[in-house]
Simulated assay, not measured.
Amino acid sequence: MLEGAKLIGAGAATIASAGVVTGIGNVSSVRLHSVARNPSLAKQLFGYAISGFALTEATALFASMTASLTLSVS
């Protein structure tokens, strides 16, 4: 019973991966639209996009860490 609950918890923690993929796509899309509207801000927007990617990827790392910790609890 406990093993099944651990697997369900780890699976629920990995659902955040879908949100990460959506977030990265959103950051890319918004940057593309912004550069298309104002090309002179491309360098500044690149820095903002990298920050957005980093924060989004941090969510994926926290989710995978949570899933691995859930599975390693005895």
Score class of each variant (00 low, 15 high):
residue 46 F to M: 13
residue 46 F to D: 15
residue 73 V to P: 00
residue 25 G to F: 08
residue 43 K to S: 15
residue 69 L to R: 12
residue 40 S to G: 11
residue 65 M to K: 07
residue 51 S to Y: 07
residue 15 I to Y: 04
residue 2 L to I: 12
residue 6 K to G: 05
residue 28 S to K: 13
residue 47 G to P: 00
residue 52 G to P: 03
residue 17 S to K: 03
residue 13 A to P: 01
residue 7 L to N: 02
residue 42 A to R: 14
residue 21 V to D: 06
residue 37 R to S: 13
residue 15 I to C: 10
residue 28 S to V: 07
residue 74 S to E: 09
residue 43 K to C: 08
residue 44 Q to C: 03
residue 43 K to Y: 08
residue 61 L to V: 11
residue 71 L to F: 11
residue 56 T to K: 06
residue 2 L to M: 09
residue 54 A to E: 03
residue 18 A to R: 02
residue 47 G to M: 11
residue 34 S to P: 06
residue 54 A to N: 04
residue 70 T to C: 13
residue 35 V to T: 09
residue 50 I to C: 11
residue 70 T to S: 12
residue 24 I to L: 15
residue 74 S to T: 05
residue 45 L to W: 03
residue 33 H to D: 13
residue 14 T to P: 01
residue 20 V to Q: 02
residue 46 F to R: 15
residue 12 A to F: 14
residue 22 T to P: 00
residue 28 S to Q: 06
residue 61 L to S: 04
residue 5 A to D: 05
residue 69 L to F: 14
residue 56 T to A: 08
residue 64 S to G: 11
residue 71 L to E: 03
residue 49 A to R: 11
residue 19 G to W: 09
residue 1 M to A: 07
residue 69 L to N: 08
residue 20 V to W: 03
residue 40 S to I: 13
residue 73 V to N: 11
residue 64 S to I: 14
residue 64 S to C: 07
residue 35 V to H: 01
residue 18 A to Y: 10
residue 10 A to V: 08
residue 66 T to W: 04
residue 36 A to D: 01
residue 26 N to F: 12
residue 7 L to W: 06
residue 70 T to R: 06
residue 33 H to F: 09
residue 74 S to H: 10
residue 73 V to S: 11
residue 8 I to L: 15
residue 20 V to A: 05
residue 50 I to D: 01
residue 55 L to T: 03
residue 30 V to F: 00
residue 30 V to H: 05
residue 58 A to I: 02
residue 57 E to V: 03
residue 37 R to P: 08
residue 69 L to S: 07
residue 4 G to R: 10
residue 1 M to I: 04
